[in-house]
């Protein structure tokens, strides 16, 4: 693997909320052109971690380096300006507004000046359509409400927007968890494309089957601590799954399932 500066790096970051230790001593690095999958069960600290990365929380200890330089964000807006774009689970899309209005929300392109300064709708519509086409979603009318799009397409609008506005680090919070198989694959394909474009992607998910095809590396969180980061070459899908759920629990689940199967067979024999 090429050993240049990681795009984003967390060094021994901890976050405490009063007496609660939400994150303890987390270190991870993501290079540009890489997808880091952040895996962990509920309560493992995934949300706290991404909220720390995206400037919602400030770390209690430790530091973060963006492109080798230490950073400390006052608010999500600063993180956004620095090139860390977060696509939250609840989307940041407004269903009743048009695709174009959503795409450029907060960063509207304008023409003219003084009282005649206005949104350049022609340009905005063209860019929105073009950026959506780039990810393989053919928008018929960029003036249509985002509410008319499917869940996967909405995620893609959010991601396309982040990429278009020059994100260097893309944080995706469970982008596929609410989606069907087909829609999830649309999003996954787009994540692969963002990686190919040289972004550093941090992809949070429950679902190893979504994570495994696009990831270059995995970081596993458990109860606020890190179980370590692994390159994809070093670890199999089953091992990831095992570590994620805590192998013992899965083994006991296996045993239980086997038990069910046996009783099923017995019943069918009786019948």
């Amino acid at each position: 693997m090429t050993e240049h500066k990681p795009m984003i790096e967390m060094c021994n970051v901890s976050k405490h909320f009063g007496s609660v230790i939400a994150l303890s001593d987390i270190s991870l690095k993501v290079h540009s052109g890489e997808v880091m999958c952040l895996l962990g069960d509920n309560g493992a600290g995934k949300s706290t971690l991404i909220k720390t990365l995206s400037g919602v929380h400030k770390p209690t200890h430790g530091e973060m380096l963006l492109d080798g330089k230490p950073v400390r964000f006052k608010s999500p807006a600063y993180a956004l300006d620095a090139g860390i774009a977060t696509v939250f689970q609840d989307l940041a899309m407004i269903p009743l507004m048009s695709i174009t209005r959503n795409f450029f929300m907060g960063r509207e392109p304008t023409v003219g000046w003084g009282p005649m300064k206005r949104i350049d709708w022609k340009y905005a519509d063209r860019i929105a359509k073009q950026e959506m086409a780039k990810i393989g979603i053919d928008v018929r009318d960029p003036g249509q409400a985002v509410g008319t799009l499917s869940g996967g397409e909405r995620q893609c609008v959010a991601i396309a927007r982040a990429v278009y506005f020059g994100a260097k680090v893309l944080i995706l919070d469970e982008p596929t968890s609410a989606l069907g198989v087909k829609q999830a694959s649309v999003v996954l394909r787009y994540i692969a494309k963002a990686r190919a474009d040289g972004l550093a992607v941090i992809f949070i998910t429950h679902n190893v089957h979504h994570a495994y095809p696009v990831a270059n590396a995995f970081t596993l969180l458990k109860r606020g601590g890190s179980l370590g980061s692994f390159r994809k070459e070093e670890i199999t899908r089953e091992e990831v799954l095992n570590m994620m759920a805590g192998g013992a629990e899965l083994e006991s689940l296996d045993a239980e399932l086997a038990e069910f199967q046996r009783s099923d067979q017995q019943q069918s024999q009786v019948a």
């Binding site: 999500p76 807006a77 956004l80 977060t86 939250f88 609840d90 989307l91 940041a92 899309m93 407004i94 269903p95 009743l96 507004m97 209005r101 450029f104 929300m105 907060g106 960063r107 509207e108 304008t110 300064k117 206005r118 949104i119 709708w121």
Partner: peptide, 24 residues
């Protein structure tokens, strides 16, 4: 219909949280 501020009005009313996350 034609100003960024107008877009922010729609966004603030549509979903204040989403709008804030997008820098409105």
């Amino acid at each position: 219909l034609f100003t960024p501020y107008g877009n922010w009005i729609f966004a603030s009313g549509g979903d204040a949280n989403a709008a804030r996350n997008s820098g409105v």
